[in-house]
Design a protein around this nucleic acid. Structure first.
Lengths: 194, 194
DNA sequence: GGCCCTCCATACTTGCGCGTATGGTTATGC
DNA sequence: GCATAACCATACGCGCAAGTATGGAGGGCC
């Protein structure tokens, strides 16, 4: 009768990692408030009795999931981009990366939405500083003086996070792939000097 | 002993307008979730018994407050800017307006944070469309072809909303007035053709 | 094959904020 | 100056999601 469709194969026992990944999944879809223990337990095919064995509290899960995400972001984006020598190329790579790796950006968008949450706020702050620093550095090496580099970096970063925000509102007309590519090209042409 | 400091002079009776303005105030400060009836009642020096005489529900207050804000925005921003003939001048005015009228933008930032709320979502959608249309129109008149105008408008708008977002996180180093002016100048120079 | 440790289910408690019920107080028409 | 309506206080009910208590099922170790 009331069979709720669990998606993640209720294969036997669970580990803390399973919970963290499931949390990241619903976080990307429904935001921080969607990370609820009973709801999560249902999608994993268990009850919250299981949850409170692996984690002491909901906040603990949230923190663990976010930490995991932040770590992946650090490893697979920042460090990879940083070792590109040519600043122009580095900036282009940065802009193009937004097109791919959708999941990661969805999580970031969800965190932005909840930046007032005491657990999320420091994360957002760290990420923002890191990305702003990365952009500022690149613009500096590209020939901008310190002040202009900081400004341009801020402009690029806010355009990025504002873009995520705009695409959150599901009422907005979703861009198709072609339109999206054209937009990214426009942004690159506008924000990166020839 | 437990005197809570009410700010808005508990002058006798209240009207629905008083509640709406108080709601807008806390909305700008603490977001949608801060618009709570008991909390609001305290700051107004009354109890919620008063509230539920003026409004049938919390949602009703939220809607009334947001409607009021949207109306003011329509009157004091959109209509005023629209009648500026020169598109370049119109865009500059638009960018500069963000510096002033802080309250209005704080409310908008708060609404952006809660764009998943069923009551807020349509508002955000309307405002976004309206402002994007305004920008697209201006860029079109400034000599951009349709596609480029749409892209540049989107870039400008997302930079705007991302800026609000960034300044929300109180952990971020707040810019002082001088730095802020310089940034706006940089944005104008970058996003508005000479 | 008895024991324990891991993992999970069931049933309960708790805190918080919305909403309701009802009665009291201040203004206003006549 | 008194009745009626506007405005507000107090006390309660209720739903929801987090957290707790406790016991049960299943696999590994000797």
């Amino acid at each position: 009768m009331g069979e709720t469709h669990e998606k993640s194969e209720p294969r036997g026992r669970l580990s803390t990692t399973d919970w963290e990944q499931a949390a990241l999944h619903v976080l990307a879809e429904g935001g921080v408030s969607a990370v609820a223990v009973e709801s999560l337990a249902r999608t994993l095919g268990v009850t919250k009795g299981s949850f409170y064995w692996h984690f002491p509290t909901r906040e603990a899960l949230l923190k663990a999931a976010i930490d995991r995400w932040e770590q992946r972001d650090e490893d697979e984006v920042i460090s990879r981009v940083e070792r590109i020598a040519d600043p122009h190329e580095r900036l282009r790579e940065l802009f193009h990366r937004v097109s791919r790796e959708v999941q990661s950006h969805l999580v970031y968008a969800a965190l932005l939405q909840a930046s007032d949450h005491p657990l999320v706020q420091p994360v957002i702050e760290r990420i923002s500083r890191r990305r702003l620093a990365l952009l500022t550095q690149a613009y500096g090496e590209a020939g901008f003086d310190a002040r202009a580099a900081a400004h341009r970096a801020r402009l690029a970063y806010t355009a990025y996070s504002g873009f995520l925000q705009l695409n959150q509102s599901h009422g907005m007309p979703r861009m198709d792939q072609e339109e999206y590519e054209a937009y990214v090209d426009h942004v690159i042409a506008t924000l990166i000097p020839a």
